[in-house]
């Protein structure tokens, strides 16, 4: 089972190393990871998709790191989730228009066209990206680059969402 969590950390050197070192040491699994700035320059946000049943321990161990300020678990459907993907597919000149039509359905943008390949950029919900990838497998995928997932909890005022937050402890 995969879980989506966002971790608000102090914007300090080495914070990411602390998190990944702790994951390695505790035998927790990271499926995807994205780090970036937040609205507050003293804070960074780490968005992680983590595998495994031991969510309670993962959250508690994250909180033990001194530079971790807040850990938020996002139950399915309660966060806006995005990924970006660049995928290069085989595209014979005679199948090119067929592929471009298909890509259109997925809102994929052709960003590079070669003699026998097309490269698409897809931005969106993780599910749409994996659907597109699945579809393009029939043409043959040459190379693929995918970002970690980023997420923000949905605005509690506009949606009936509930964020699960655990108390910060030692």
């Amino acid at each position: 089972m995969q879980h989506l969590i966002t971790v608000t950390v102090e914007n300090q050197p080495g914070v990411l190393a602390r998190i990944t070192s702790m994951f390695a040491r505790r035998d927790f699994n990271i499926h995807s990871l994205a780090v970036g700035p937040t609205e507050d320059p003293t804070r960074s946000r780490v968005t992680m998709v983590v595998d495994g049943p031991e969510m309670e321990q993962i959250v508690k161990q994250l909180y033990k790191l001194i530079h971790v300020i807040k850990v938020t678990e996002h139950p399915q459907g309660e966060a806006i989730e995005r990924e970006i993907m660049l995928v290069r597919v085989h595209a014979d000149p005679k199948r090119r228009s067929e592929i471009l039509n298909a890509a259109n359905i997925f809102d994929a943008t052709a960003v590079d066209v070669g003699a026998s390949t097309i490269t698409f950029e897809v931005v969106g919900e993780p599910m749409r990206l994996s659907d597109f990838l699945e579809f393009m497998k029939t043409y043959g995928i040459v190379s693929l680059a995918k970002s970690g997932r980023i997420a923000l909890a949905k605005d509690a005022k506009s949606q009936n969402t509930k964020q699960k937050q655990t108390a910060k402890g030692a």
Partner: peptide, 18 residues
């Protein structure tokens, strides 16, 4: 325990107190 991560790490606590 003062360390919440120790609680229910090995054995599930029925009454956890941090």
């Amino acid at each position: 325990d003062v360390d919440p991560a120790e609680i229910s790490k090995i054995r599930k606590a029925d009454v956890p107190i941090v």
